[in-house]
Nucleic acid binder design. Structure first.
Lengths: 98, 98
DNA sequence: TAAAGTACTTTGAAATTCAAAGTATAATGA
DNA sequence: TCATTATACTTTGAATTTCAAAGTACTTTA
């Protein structure tokens, strides 16, 4: 049980951390919203959302808004639980600094 | 200026986060101490310390203790400043969750 | 003095990251 | 109306990073 035991590999990247962080406080976020909020390129964002999707931490819904495709993301129960644990692990590391 | 702007790429990995975290609260840590605290393999730890060293965030001193080689690590001023900034960025993400 | 242990370092395969290019459709403008 | 530009992603593959196994150079132990 080391100090980094509860750091989740899947959240251990700034873009994925950002995606989760946005999705924890917003019920949904679409591709462009995430792209803008995180300053990621299209391809980069797509691969990170795919990684989180594969881990079943986020859910993807594709729809059309008017005639435009729109992809929106939301967290899963599993994702929310995992993220909370990750945040707690970070907090515990941070508190050691104080 | 996105929510992940101040997340430092070099600290954005659990092992390097762990190394810095240990070195922030201990003046020195040697190879084995870090290895044990972080549960890293030798090769893995070596490459992460090398990355932090290259970024001039930690300093490496090699000496002999008795007849055994001993490598000890400590933070640099630059490293401490960068890590503080990183921790503040994490805190700000965490606080958004509350 | 052979075998096992210590303290790393090197190596290279595997996994990950990333942006450029691609796809498909929609909107715009001439 | 038809070419051009824009939108919303996806695919691709080169570059980088991660990782553990194997290697090196001793030292300790039996």
């Amino acid at each position: 049980m080391s100090i980094i035991t509860n750091i989740n590999k899947l959240f251990d990247h700034r873009i994925r951390l950002g995606i989760m962080s946005v999705l924890m406080v917003n019920e949904y976020a679409d591709f462009n919203m995430l792209k803008e909020l995180l300053g990621a390129t299209d391809g980069n964002l797509a691969s990170h959302t795919k990684a989180l999707e594969k881990g079943e931490y986020i859910k993807v819904e594709k729809q059309f808004i008017g005639r435009k495709p729109n992809t929106r993301y939301s967290t899963t129960k599993l994702g929310r639980a995992a993220f909370k644990k990750h945040i707690e692990a970070l907090e515990s590391i941070i508190n050691k600094q104080k």
